[in-house]
Write a protein that binds this DNA or RNA. Structure first.
Length: 754
DNA sequence: CCGACTACTGTTTTT
DNA sequence: CAGTAGTCGG
């Protein structure tokens, strides 16, 4: 930290006004550059309030904020994630986009619930056509700033498949529902701000002027919406400093546009570019590995990573019989490292491609008495009991929030069942009021018996009372009052089983989280404390609670690892199907395939001193044991092969097409040998009827990659095919029509060719 | 209207 | 395997 800046770093720090693009390789001191740059700007007399630093994760924001504080104690630079920044803006001008400032933020589960509801309303079969698929497509479109109307227009120009037809129906209704329920999802948070910036020039100018200097971290991860926000804020004062690394772009699947980096040069005049290629983080052996690996990506500016660091220990690959052995040995090694080699637990990190792999390591680590922290996808706030209580808080703050309302209206059970809910929904729709308002007027719903009215009245009364209390009561008071009123804890208190104790403990953890939040808030703000607390809970994930100073081994996915560094890193499960992930290979898209390589690149470059790669001969997955095939990326790195693994010579970069084909073949082999033949009964097929299902396994009728003929569309290639009971479909891509169509095998007009 | 049981399905990655 | 959605009987 105390070392001086390099010439290149200096250049980025000293650059004053005008757009600046910092292309920073891993470990090249990017965060240092940003924080020093902020400090330098302030030194130059730029008021701290006019500086805005935007990041993607809370973790990065917090890290940056604390480092700025270290350099410039007490300064009020705004460091925030894109989402939080947008949320704050929308709290100020909610009516610009048709919201009220009490809007709540939906998580993925809420989104799915809403999509499912809408699909049902439209008469779609949500069993065979998964709401998740619809949501994914819609979200992808919205990330790309495609509106519902544009989506429909494109579809009508015959681009798209059956699923898109459903999206056309759901999309506008979904957005309309968001507004009428006074809620936003993660995408809408950004989109509304884009809307303000494009349609309200006076607001845009005001913000542009307020934030004269903007710094964006991980620029390669910006999606179209974020990009527009950025440009919108930097029109009159184009003092944008974007830092990023195209080789670390790993969020393409959620709409990130790494080519925003190229656009940056196009959209801003006189961009100054600074390249930081020197890696100060890792040993030469590790940098070598990373450099050779990433060189295999074809769509990339060639770049050579260098380091002044010593060679260090070779990067070693080992292979174990199965996942449990793998986990056990890694755990034992970590324990040993701490006991004998003067390491501390926090020096170690274990990465994996999918969260599912964390479990075996967790058990192994606790068996060896090693403390660990997991940055898992399932957050504290997603646990049922927590979601219940948060649901209550959300309804109290924003009674229009239907996802929250339907979750909690009958929890704990108060005999408000599906039928009652449906009657309220219909009544509310008729009178154009929210469901909560409808519930309040349940005496006007003739079909409701007094037996179902009574609990409804009690419920609405409870919510109203607590809502009124928010004006002068704290969040923790609210939660405790709520617990008392609905006697919530008794749901879990009865037995002395572990799960119930966990749940009760979680509830108390929520209360203490609320207390902590209140303390942080201080005495000055009283009224909106509930709103702030809810915002915190919806925009914070478990990953953000990972704390490297906690004296524990860190377990996380490769995605979550970005931006971090550890002296010793283990990367698990270097197997075909896992990395590159089966799904990234299956869709045959070179873009997603190369993203897998970048992901491994990110993982590898987290290590400072030691990097250990492991794989197994057998992997138990979804209850099935399968033998594995080594990841093809392994032969792209100079490794030391341990324990009798046949040495595969390091290859030189072949053409991308060949690599892809290789990967696909391997994947097919790996699975076909263990595939049980698809047995499809006639009854199952009838059940299907015109349903569209996601691809899961291969059907023996139409192997993936084979050519088929369709009477109408002509020749096509099978993209995916499902067997399995209850669903049997084939998805075919017709190159000449630019069309992807899914067929139900029972009445499938397809003919195999050749 | 509620709870219990059974089928089924699938997770890449996250704000 | 494990979590969930959907079904059935009281």
């Amino acid at each position: 930290m105390s070392q001086s800046l390099t010439v290149a770093q200096q250049a980025a720090v000293e650059h004053f006004e005008g757009p600046l693009l910092v292309l920073a390789g891993p470990g090249s001191g990017k965060t240092r550059v940003i924080t020093h740059r902020i400090a330098r700007l302030i030194e130059r007399g730029v008021p701290a309030e006019t500086i805005l630093a935007l990041t993607f994760t809370n973790k990065a924001a917090r890290e940056m904020a604390s480092r700025v504080q270290l350099l410039m104690p007490g300064c009020r630079v705004q460091v925030s994630t894109f989402h939080r920044f947008c949320s704050r803006l929308l709290r100020i001008w909610p009516e610009d986009v048709g919201l009220k400032s009490s809007f709540s933020i939906l998580d993925t589960t809420d989104q799915l619930r809403l999509v499912r509801q809408i699909m049902k309303d439209c008469g779609y079969d949500t069993v065979h056509l998964e709401p998740r698929r619809i949501l994914n497509r819609m979200s992808r479109a919205r990330n790309d700033l495609v509106t519902a109307e544009t989506f429909r227009r494109r579809y009508e120009q015959r681009v798209g498949d059956l699923v898109d037809a459903v999206v056309c129906d759901v999309f506008p209704r979904y957005e309309q529902q968001l507004l009428s329920q006074n809620v936003v999802d993660f995408d809408a948070l950004l989109l509304h701000v884009v809307d303000i910036l494009t349609n309200a020039p006076e607001r845009r100018e005001c913000l542009d002027e307020q934030f004269r200097f903007i710094l964006v971290d991980e620029y390669q991860d910006t999606n179209q919406a974020q990009y527009r926000i950025l440009t919108g804020l930097s029109h009159s004062f184009p003092n944008v400093c974007a830092t990023g690394d195209p080789d670390q772009s790993i969020y393409g699947w959620r709409g990130a546009r790494p080519d925003n980096i190229a656009h940056f040069e196009r959209d801003f005049d006189g961009v100054k570019i600074v390249m930081l290629d020197e890696n100060f983080r890792s040993s030469a052996a590790i940098v070598d590995c990373a450099d050779q690996l990433i060189a295999f990506n074809t769509r990339r500016h060639p770049r050579k990573l260098t380091t002044p660091n010593p060679q260090g220990a070779p990067v070693r690959l080992r292979r174990f019989t199965n996942g449990d052995t793998e986990a056990d040995i890694v755990a034992a090694e970590i324990a040993h490292g701490v006991r004998e080699n003067n390491r501390c637990y926090a020096d170690f990190a274990v990465f994996y491609r999918v969260n599912a792999l964390s479990r075996s390591i967790e058990t192994a680590l606790s068996r060896h008495g090693v403390p660990y922290q997991v940055a898992a996808g399932v957050s504290f706030y997603e646990r049922a009991e927590i979601r219940d209580l948060i649901g209550y808080l959300r309804v109290i703050e924003n009674p229009a929030d239907e996802s929250a309302l339907t979750r909690i209206i009958n929890r704990p059970a108060r005999t408000i069942g599906e039928k009652t809910l449906l009657k309220i929904r219909n009544f509310s729709a008729q009178h154009c009021i929210t469901m909560f308002a409808g519930a309040c007027r349940c005496d006007e719903i003739p079909s409701l018996t007094s037996r179902s009215r009574r609990p409804l009245e009690a419920f609405t009364d409870l919510i109203r009372r607590l809502h009124d209390a928010t004006a002068h009561k704290s969040v923790s008071w609210l939660i405790e009052q709520l617990l008392a009123e609905i006697d919530y804890l008794s749901l879990w208190r009865d037995h002395d089983n572990e799960i119930d104790q966990d749940r009760a403990a979680n509830v108390h953890e929520l209360i203490s989280a609320a207390r902590q939040y209140e303390q942080l808030l201080g005495e000055d703000e009283d009224g909106r404390s509930l709103q702030g607390f809810l915002e915190l809970t919806s925009l914070t994930s478990e990953v953000d609670n990972v704390d490297q100073s906690r004296g524990a081994v860190t377990l996380m996915t490769m995605h979550a690892a970005k931006g971090l560094e550890f002296p010793v890193v283990y990367v698990l499960g270097l197997e075909s199907g896992l990395i590159p992930h089966e799904r990234a290979v299956r869709d045959g898209n070179p873009v997603s395939f190369e993203e897998e390589r970048r992901l491994l690149f990110v993982a590898v470059t987290r290590a400072q001193e030691e990097l250990h790669l492991t794989q197994t001969y057998e992997r138990t997955f979804q209850g099935q044991r399968r033998s594995t095939i080594p990841s093809m990326f392994l032969q792209e790195m100079p490794l030391e092969y341990g324990d009798g693994i046949p040495q595969t010579p390091c290859v030189t970069a072949p053409k991308l097409d060949e690599q892809l084909q290789q990967a696909r073949q391997r994947y097919e082999i790996a699975h076909s040998s263990h595939q049980k033949p698809a047995v499809i009964s006639g009854a199952d097929l009838l059940k299907q009827h015109e349903a569209v299902s996601p691809a899961t396994d291969q059907s023996s009728l139409f192997p993936v990659g084979s050519t088929v003929r369709h009477p109408q569309y002509g020749r096509g290639t099978v993209v995916s095919a499902t067997g399995g009971t209850g669903r049997a479909t084939v998805t075919v891509h017709f190159e000449s029509q630019n069309l992807e169509q899914t067929f139900v095998a029972s009445h499938c007009p397809l003919q195999p060719v050749g």
